[in-house]
Amino acid sequence: MIHNALRKISVMILPLGTTMLVHAQMPAEQPLFITSTQIQALQQQPERWTALQKRCDTELDTRAQPVADFSPAPHYSSTGITHDTTAKNLSTDAGIIYRAALCYQLTTNRAYASHAQTMIDAWSKTVKTVDKGQGASDFNFNLPQIIIGASLVRGVNDWDDTTFRALLTDKAAATTHADKANNHGNWGVLLDASIAAYLGNTQQLAKTSHRWQALMQSQVADDGSLPLEICRSNTNNYCGGADQGINGLSYTHYTLLPTAVAAEILALRGFDVYQGDAGRKLGLAYARAARWTRYPDTFPYYQSNDGKLNGIRNAAYFSILQKHYPNPDADTVLREGKVGMNGLELLMLFTAD
């Protein structure tokens, strides 16, 4: 059962801006960004997660594929995307862990929890080193999903999460890219927020909320665009080359997804980053991304790429932001369906039936 109790309420103003934040010190065992209300509502609508449960069932016999030295090859080369088995294994396992944990919450079937816990333990006990390059990047991109999953099965089956907590404190925390200026910074903030929330570290949550706000202030232009992302190409000439901008909308989405999830984690713990100047900037970015998603021909690099853009509808996170910044373009996109980048099952969790 998920508990919603909020304890030890205090008020504080962070130095970054004008946002008054109500700090709610929550139990460390609180799931990261899914509330009891969401779960209970979904439990009454099993038709909405039948497909998810079937997938969980087919994945129950899947074994984790951890490695001792997590050092995948760079994601991009001069000719395009590289495909590294090590990186793919972490991404695949993270998705399986999260789905199993979510299936446990929806069904209370402990077999799902046990599966998630076994896979988490496998990675926690096996990984010894993480490469500072692509390895650190992939930890930032994938560990939050595992941490969120772990929060959904914490304490079930008398699970001892000591080794997992050690992975977070001794290895994962050191890989954070929260200090980066582009999308890596947003994923790093999500990683930091996930670790802090799982461990119940309120001081780190406050620091993370400050960085979240700083990124929104620096990344979002007055027109709502993300200048560091809209130029993205499909090679290691990241913001140039013949296909400059072909990934620009995709990377806009890839930046706003962790931003939205981190905002939920922080807001549930009393750090309401949706308010104030930084929150206003997120609203601008959301509106711009929604407009481009609905009308991709208005994207700056649409014509130069002969009408081809990657990841146009990778916008499942719209379901989170729509409740904070209602937007007609986003509403249309969500109603049309065929929305991608839904690995966290956001469309099921945040979209009303």
Score class of each variant (00 low, 15 high):
residue 350 F to E: 01
residue 247 N to G: 04
residue 293 T to K: 01
residue 294 R to Q: 12
residue 168 L to P: 01
residue 97 I to H: 11
residue 65 Q to L: 11
residue 178 A to H: 03
residue 266 L to Q: 03
residue 25 Q to L: 12
residue 52 L to R: 01
residue 1 M to T: 02
residue 221 A to M: 08
residue 211 R to E: 10
residue 91 S to P: 08
residue 231 C to E: 15
residue 279 G to W: 05
residue 183 N to P: 00
residue 12 M to W: 09
residue 210 H to V: 14
residue 115 H to M: 06
residue 301 Y to H: 09
residue 202 T to P: 01
residue 44 Q to P: 00
residue 101 A to C: 14
residue 25 Q to D: 15
residue 303 Q to Y: 00
residue 20 M to W: 06
residue 119 M to Q: 11
residue 47 E to I: 05
residue 11 V to Q: 07
residue 63 R to S: 13
residue 163 T to V: 13
residue 330 A to C: 09
residue 34 I to Y: 02
residue 125 K to D: 13
residue 19 T to F: 02
residue 16 L to A: 09
residue 199 L to M: 07
residue 43 Q to A: 03
residue 266 L to H: 03
residue 209 S to W: 11
residue 282 L to V: 09
residue 116 A to W: 02
residue 305 N to W: 00
residue 179 D to H: 08
residue 295 Y to H: 12
residue 18 T to D: 14
residue 209 S to A: 15
residue 257 L to M: 10
residue 79 T to I: 12
residue 157 N to T: 01
residue 180 K to H: 07
residue 123 W to T: 06
residue 40 Q to G: 07
residue 241 G to L: 07
residue 96 I to P: 13
residue 342 N to K: 10
residue 88 K to A: 15
residue 134 Q to E: 14
residue 278 A to K: 02
residue 83 H to V: 13
residue 86 T to N: 13
residue 104 Y to N: 12
residue 55 R to D: 04
residue 262 A to S: 11
residue 35 T to A: 04
residue 7 R to Y: 08
residue 105 Q to W: 10
residue 338 K to W: 10
residue 299 F to W: 04
residue 14 L to K: 01
residue 268 L to T: 01
residue 278 A to S: 08
residue 218 S to N: 15
residue 235 T to M: 04
residue 352 A to V: 09
residue 201 N to C: 03
residue 81 I to G: 06
residue 52 L to I: 02
residue 14 L to H: 07
residue 211 R to Y: 03
residue 310 N to E: 12
residue 251 Y to H: 08
residue 94 A to E: 07
residue 203 Q to I: 10
residue 286 Y to D: 00
residue 349 L to E: 08
residue 246 I to F: 04
residue 252 T to R: 00
residue 4 N to R: 05
residue 5 A to N: 00
residue 329 D to Q: 10
residue 248 G to E: 05
residue 341 M to R: 14
residue 90 L to T: 13
residue 343 G to H: 12
residue 91 S to Q: 15
residue 107 T to F: 12
residue 204 Q to C: 09
residue 49 W to P: 03
residue 81 I to N: 13
residue 39 I to W: 05
residue 173 A to H: 06
residue 179 D to Y: 05
